[in-house]
Design a protein around this nucleic acid. Sequence first.
DNA 1: GTCTATAATCAGATAGAC
DNA 2: GTCTATCTGATTATAGAC
Lengths: 216, 216
Amino acid sequence: MNKTAKSSKTGAIRTRNTRNILVAAEHEFVLYGYKGTSMQAIADRAQLPKANILYYFKSKEKLYIAVIEGILELWKAVFGEIKEEDDPAEELERFIRVKIDMSFKHPRASKLFAMEIILGAPHIENYIKTDMRSWLMEKCHVITRWIELGKMEPIDPMQLIFMLWSSTQHYADFDTQVLILMDRKSYKPTDKEQISRALSEIILRGCGLVPSHLKK
Amino acid sequence: MNKTAKSSKTGAIRTRNTRNILVAAEHEFVLYGYKGTSMQAIADRAQLPKANILYYFKSKEKLYIAVIEGILELWKAVFGEIKEEDDPAEELERFIRVKIDMSFKHPRASKLFAMEIILGAPHIENYIKTDMRSWLMEKCHVITRWIELGKMEPIDPMQLIFMLWSSTQHYADFDTQVLILMDRKSYKPTDKEQISRALSEIILRGCGLVPSHLKK
DNA sequence: GTCTATAATCAGATAGAC
DNA sequence: GTCTATCTGATTATAGAC
């Protein structure tokens, strides 16, 4: 009984500390890159002694991988399914909205993922080969069916999906550049809506579809 | 006379070494990031003693900045002008082709630039605020004029340009991911044409324009 | 101009007290 | 479980011989 009470309490501290460390690590890794981040800096941000970080995560690399895995979980939880019975315009528009939303809500996750890929995806090659690949293939298949059913113009499904990814992630990964060019300190709440709309308009019309705000 | 001959010869070695170092540095920085790259690794790749690198460039950071500046020069040399008398379809298509060409020819330049921006653009903030910003404003102005003249659909010029940038750079910055997903080791010569065409088709149609390969 | 040897610093990891 | 003190190795940069 005593033991149970003790360990559950300890577990709570453990959970809280682990979470703090992961958040702090994500911040630092995005600010300075993997090598440029010191365990000391993560410890300072998490307000814990450096040795504790290495107590919870055995090494810097294991901590980094844990951060990346958290991001993959977040990714997976968000992307819904599409079916050939669905309306392409609605689904593409929804996808753009969700991804822009992610870019605004979790810019650091997007950036860390981007850096990982730019540096050759050493830690997530397997994820790309399996989960991401099968997700993409499914989507390509549905889009191909939509085209066969005459629901949209015949375009390369894979390039379309790459375009959806890149044009939405741009607002997270390159926010520094985008904000300087827009002469802003940070995004405004209304930006999300305006950008989603602009992207939807170009991409949907590009597929021979009509975005909802232009219907009727 | 002697002195001139000597210095010109020395200058030649200097030029060659400088070039070698810059190329080697670009490779290493893209592979391992700024902090993850050691001067030793650059020296090894350039086949020079480590101290020589620091003789030519006074510090690691100065070398990094030199690499970045080389990339900016490359960028500037490529992007042409557009005028309101020009045909939007032709110009957008040309721009996409040129940028995809850059992505295939200089993927490392694109990646290094991307990493720099993701990490907060500490070394190129000024470039973005001045050169890049004025370039963007000019282009936005011409596109606005095109819209006023009824040459294309009314879309947000800035988001259009961001989309052109992001969707083309994606093939350089994320080549690792793209190639794994396409189940390839490297891009084929025909990919460039196919991708340019797919992007042009979606984006031009998205602007209410007709891509050249669909005309008539 | 070129290169060897070395100084000075800082990182990740660990041992061991509490 | 938590934290202080320390070890080990690597890195940038420099001093000085050639």
